[in-house]
């Protein structure tokens, strides 16, 4: 569990604080999304929680331990996956993981076995003889996750971890995070793309200029992130609109109807086209859109005046 209270970080006097009076709680068995535009303060927050930089004021408790005052005890429970993984370029994976393991008091033999399991799990075991500088970006990312798991921490900080992965990588990573949640871990995952978080996060904290502007709960999320249907008919009439009313709130523009607030699960969208078809309408196209979430996000964080 991570408990952040009144966290402020000011890098220099003549700059506004990068993080301002931030309060957040990430519970065990919860995936907390952390969304914000570039420079909003996501990385800064994560680096404070991981103990790399010091807060200007405020407090971070990791499993009840203060990351500044009880650094060693708090860090035992933190697994940090950086935005840009940075490891000893000439280092080799097993040897480096063993080095990290030593800080947790894991004996070398056990550390070696653990390193092997993790490297295999993340599919980089075969690259163990190569120096880390020869790893691809994705491999480095996977290695840094293995490194974060070495001490078997209760809390994970993922900084833009989904960013830059191929579709298969994104899917694997999501499954992995869901498995962490199932194991009761607290997961903090930042991204500057809200929709990246929507399928995985239980809650999403939105940060703007260092301040949390909104914590979107799962229930809000399903409303917001709800897909809308864009239906193009050959001919749009009042009957069609009223008929679509049973599935949500239709809105007409030309021969296009946008159906919002869908009250059927996304898997049953076919029912809409079925209904139209049975009523004798010619459906030219029907497509799902989730623009509502992004709109909402941009509204929240947009630079606006």
């Amino acid at each position: 569990m991570i408990h952040i209270t009144h966290l402020t970080k000011q890098f220099s006097r003549n700059q506004p604080p990068a993080v301002k009076n931030l309060d957040l709680e990430i519970n065990d068995g919860e995936i907390m999304g952390f969304a914000g535009l570039n420079g909003a303060g996501k990385t800064t927050t994560i680096r404070i929680v991981s103990g790399i930089i010091f807060p200007t004021s405020g407090k971070v408790l990791v499993n009840g331990k203060d990351i500044v005052k009880e650094k060693v005890a708090a860090s035992k429970h933190i697994g940090w996956v950086p935005e840009l993984p940075n490891f000893e370029p000439t280092g080799k994976s097993v040897q480096l993981l063993k080095y990290y393991a030593g800080f947790y008091g894991i004996p070398p033999k056990e550390a070696e076995a653990r390193a092997e399991t993790l490297l295999k799990k993340f599919n980089i075991w075969d690259a163990r003889r190569r120096p880390l500088k020869d790893y691809s970006q994705g491999m480095k990312k996977r290695f840094s996750i293995a490194a974060a798991m070495m001490g078997d921490p209760d809390n994970f900080l993922f900084d833009e971890t989904l960013n830059g992965l191929d579709p298969e990588g994104v899917k694997n990573m999501r499954d992995f995070m869901l498995s962490l949640r199932k194991d009761g871990k607290a997961v903090f995952l930042s991204s500057h793309i809200l929709s990246e978080l929507e399928n995985v996060a239980d809650r999403i904290a939105v940060i703007k200029r260092g301040e949390i502007v909104k914590v979107i709960e799962r229930s809000d999320l399903s409303n917001l992130g709800e897909i809308s249907l864009k239906i193009v008919l050959q001919k749009v009439d009042e009957n069609a609109i009223s008929m679509l009313g049973q599935y949500g709130i239709p809105e007409k523009s030309g021969n296009e109807i946008v159906l919002r607030n869908l009250n059927i699960p996304s898997g049953e969208v076919y029912k809409v086209s079925e209904t139209l078809f049975k009523a004798g309408y010619r459906v030219i196209s029907i497509s799902t859109e989730s623009e509502g979430l992004e709109d909402y996000f941009l509204e929240l964080v947009g630079s606006g005046k």
């Binding site: 103990g51 060693v72 005890a73 860090s75 035992k76 950086p82 940075n86 000893e88 947790y104 001490g151």
Partner: peptide, 17 residues
């Protein structure tokens, strides 16, 4: 070298000060 390159950060997040 480690401090400037950021390599030290991956060590500092461990249980150490």
């Amino acid at each position: 070298k480690d401090k400037a390159s950021g390599v030290l950060e991956s060590i500092i997040t461990r249980p150490v000060t």
